[in-house]
Amino acid sequence: MAKQSNEPVLWALFSAGGVFAAFVIPVHLFLIGLAFPLGWIPAPGYEYLHALVRLPLARLYVFALCSLALFHWAHRFRYTLYDGLQIKHLNELIFFCCYGGAILGTVWAGYLLWNFR
């Protein structure tokens, strides 16, 4: 190939995040954001959730979800800014802000989950 671009890698992360987000985020958000706070469904107790997140598999799941969903966001948001606002001259700035944000979020998620007590 003539030149190896990063686009396939970014697109793979975007797609994986899109699939992951589509399957799991609606139910998570419904429970954590509406059903539990509004008392539609009794919320799980602190002890139970704490024990749940202690499981390595659960932490791996949360980490993958957070990171991929953020790369999904970065990719879409980047193109929305390009096209929706016609600010292509800020290409590089947008690129670094979007993927930089996703990387920062990934690091934050890794830090929180790695140090989870």
Binding site: C66, W73, F77, G105
Partner: peptide, 15 residues
């Protein structure tokens, strides 16, 4: 495309 912003918001809530 804007839905991705809300996906990111969910990640913030989860973290």
């Amino acid at each position: 495309e804007i839905s991705s912003v809300f996906v990111a918001w969910f990640v913030v809530v989860l973290l």
